[in-house]
Amino acid sequence: MREVTAATIRQKGGPFQVERLFLDEPRPDEVLVRVVATGMCHTDMVARDQLYDVPLPIVLGHEGAGVIEEVGESVKKVRAGDHVVLTYMWCGHCKPCLRGDLTYCENFYPLNFGGAREDGSTATCEAGGGAIHDHFFGQSSFGTYALVHERNVVKVPHDAPLELLGPLGCGIQTGAGAVINALKVTPGSSFATFGGGAVGLSAVMAARVAGATTIIVSDVVPSRLELAKELGATHVVNSRQTDPVAAVREITDGGADFTLESSGRPEVLRQAIDALSIGGTCGIVGAPALGIEASFDVNDVMTAGKRIIGIIEGESKPDLFIPALVELYTQGRFPFDKLVRFYTLEQINQAAEDSEKGVTIKPIIRLAASQA
């Protein structure tokens, strides 16, 4: 087994504990990745705080990027030395997967939150042999190495800044994909995002790429609203000071064509629905605790022909969408690096605190140099 350094969660609410652990060698369909950097996502905190039923102890982290060190004997997708982004896991054999709806895999929850491979096995243990849950989103990348199925690794160009790219595997592709793949925001349309974190601001950049001409951000953090304008928002609303529904309806002369809710708060979802135009569509990407319910005015939705859709991982097909986002970044059209602040693995609890306080929009935990 390979010795690794990783951050574990052993109790509800944390903290992350940096420990020496041991990792299996790759199975025939797996690859071993030397992790260069891993983004920290709201979903990591959701798992830490047990808002979702995730087994403990576990190594979290699901926005990894790194270099392939070893490949299993049946792996054909990548080879040693390739630079890769790690993304979510899907089974590949259920009905949604077979029709290409990867983010709605029937086995999505156990594969991404179950703390094990599809067969229930784990690959990580303590020095004394005690099992540690892993394979969080198929990767558990808050560590120096990650063992990943070839299905959820995405090859990226060697000249792309690998330490930046991990968040493309979840949070960034969720926001951008919600706009481009799921909502299908159109040129000349109006778009409003309720929540100006990493997902919401990624949606802003994608809406600009898609050609929306009115782009509105509602949030409570002034610095996020200022950054939103820099990234392409045409209007911003501080929802602590102004009714965001009234503001959006005034700016758009009746309501937005598309809205996105990324805060995970039921009352904010209601705002996103109420702010829609006739025939508008609201996408939901915020992740509250399991069992949380929300309400809306049924007649307002029905008589206005509004649509409300759930969106997972931006409905992204990662092998196609992540390289596209990398190319947009390279061209200067998707500057997601403006969301980022770097931390060491030993600073992981500070990164989580800064994220939750809104001090940092997208923390990235830097683990190694990117040289192959």
Rank of each mutant, 00 (worst) to 15 (best):
P187C: 05
S189I: 08
S190K: 07
F191V: 05
A192D: 05
A192C: 09
T193A: 14
T193L: 02
F194M: 04
F194R: 04
G195K: 01
G196I: 03
G196P: 13
G197Y: 02
G197W: 04
G197P: 05
G197D: 05
A198V: 07
A198H: 09
V199E: 06
G200E: 01
G200N: 04
L201M: 15
L201R: 05
S202F: 02
S202P: 04
A203L: 08
A203S: 15
A203N: 09
A203H: 05
M205P: 11
M205C: 10
A207D: 09
R208S: 09
A210E: 15
A212S: 09
T213I: 01
I215W: 10
I216C: 09
V217K: 07
V217F: 07
S218C: 15
S218Y: 02
D219T: 00
V220M: 14
V220K: 07
V221G: 00
V221M: 09
V221W: 01
V221L: 14
P222Y: 11
P222R: 11
P222F: 12
P222E: 12
P222C: 07
P222Q: 13
R224W: 03
R224M: 03
R224L: 07
R224T: 01
L225I: 03
E226D: 13
E226N: 05
E226G: 06
E226S: 12
L227H: 12
E230F: 09
L231K: 04
T234L: 13
T234G: 04
T234V: 11
T234I: 06
H235C: 12
H235W: 08
H235F: 13
V236A: 09
V237K: 02
V237R: 02
V237S: 11
N238S: 04
S239R: 12
S239W: 00
S239Y: 10
S239Q: 07
Q241L: 14
Q241N: 15
Q241R: 15
D243P: 06
D243M: 08
P244F: 01
P244T: 02
V245S: 06
A246Q: 15
A246W: 04
A247P: 14
A247C: 06
V248L: 00
R249V: 08
I251C: 10
I251M: 10
I251E: 11
T252I: 02
D253F: 02
G254A: 05
A256R: 09
D257S: 12
D257M: 09
D257C: 08
F258L: 01
F258R: 05
T259S: 15
L260Y: 10
E261A: 11
S263R: 05
G264K: 10
R265A: 12
